[in-house]
């Protein structure tokens, strides 16, 4: 990495993304300090996967960034050409993609797919060095007999092993920032634990900053320092992981947490759930997108997107939530979720 470490290795400012006439991201702000692990949680359709593709400049046909900026290591990458971005992707910023079964090219060997990442950013690297480094990478993600496995194809690997290979590819060039989009969603619980362990280990030892995109609040709680809750293309609340799960300040975060069937929760009490369905991005209300489903909504909520409201935990750091009644939500929360029903 570069000698000077900027205060923010990764920053997204007011990012707006549209597919055709439909705005999917409506002004997203996100910031990562070196080595920080930030979770982006949201339900399907919240725009969290679009965020991953947008920051990598891989929106594909029809998608475009309409305003805002993404900077990596202090450098604005939104204005770069596709070719210039090719030098950033995989070197400063890399990706672990969601479904391990479809994220590797089925007709190329594992070795060639890892080697591709190495050669792309290390022109003139010898064949031997590529092989040697690939073996190191594979063993660092816990793949046994790496020499032999380099010559194998994806179909000869299990789901968990493929996800390890994807991690090896992503960290091949020691990136500053790793975008992990649902990295364990397709895996079994015990396999997920293995893969998260590998990921935790690697980012800690290499000081990689991580954006973990997921719908799984449990994974976020374990892995992340900070959590951003996403709803209808905006981050509606951001807080330290423990604080958010303790005391959410946005009604959506609170409702999401309340709807979890948390271990130890009393069986006699029905789970809370959020009425209605997430809004269609083609017809959003002018005000808060959550207002139509929100139990605390007032007429003024429908008027304009609320300014972020700061809430202060006693002795804690300031945090904010995009809600007119954030302070109230925060103050009235009855302590730790589910704690009062513990066994």
């Amino acid at each position: 990495m570069t000698g000077t470490t900027p205060e923010r290795v990764f920053a997204v400012d007011g990012l707006r993304v549209s597919y055709g006439d439909t705005e999917i991201l409506r002004g997203v702000d996100l910031m990562l300090a070196p080595g920080e692990k930030v979770g982006v949680v949201g339900e399907s359709g919240s725009g969290k996967s679009t965020l991953a593709l947008a920051v990598l400049g891989l929106l594909g046909a029809g998608g475009r960034i309409t305003s805002g900026r993404v900077s990596v290591l202090g450098r604005d990458v939104t204005g770069l050409s596709d070719r210039e971005l090719d030098r950033v992707r995989g070197r400063d910023l890399s990706l672990v993609f969601q479904d391990p079964l479809t994220s590797l090219d089925p007709v190329k060997t594992i070795g060639s797919q890892i080697g591709e990442a190495l050669r792309r950013h290390n022109r003139g690297m010898s064949k031997r060095d590529v092989a040697k480094r690939s073996v190191e990478l594979l063993s660092s993600v816990g793949v046994s007999a790496p020499e032999r496995r380099l010559a194998q194809y994806p179909h000869e690997f299990s789901g968990g092993m493929r996800q390890r290979v994807l991690i090896a590819i992503a960290i091949a060039n020691d990136p500053a920032v790793l975008i992990a989009d649902e990295p364990t969603t397709a895996l079994d619980v015990t396999t997920q634990a293995q893969v998260m362990e590998v990921l935790e280990d690697l980012v800690a030892s290499r000081g990689i900053s991580v954006v973990l995109i997921t719908h799984d609040l449990g994974v976020v709680a374990e892995f992340c320092d900070r959590v951003c809750v996403m709803y209808a293309g905006r981050i509606v609340e951001s807080a330290g992981a423990a604080e958010l799960f303790d005391r959410p300040a946005h009604p959506y975060s609170r409702a999401l947490l309340a709807s979890l069937a948390l271990p130890g929760r009393s069986r006699s009490e029905p789970l809370e759930w959020i009425p209605g369905a997430p809004p269609a991005m083609t017809s959003l209300p002018p005000g808060c997108a959550f207002a139509p489903r929100c139990a605390m909504a007032e007429p003024r909520c429908a008027e304009a997107i609320p300014e972020p409201e700061a809430v202060f935990a006693a002795g804690g750091s300031p945090r904010w939530a995009e809600c007119l009644r954030a302070g109230e939500v925060y103050d009235t929360h009855n302590g730790r979720v589910g704690a009062d029903h513990g066994a």
């Binding site: 891989l58 596709d82 992707r89 070197r91 890399s94 990706l95 993609f97 591709e116």
Partner: peptide, 16 residues
């Protein structure tokens, strides 16, 4: 071209 592995290959910095 819409396969997930295409996104992964691009994310390594390989040109279009």
């Amino acid at each position: 071209a819409t396969s997930p592995y295409v996104v992964v290959v691009r994310s390594k910095g390989v040109g279009r």
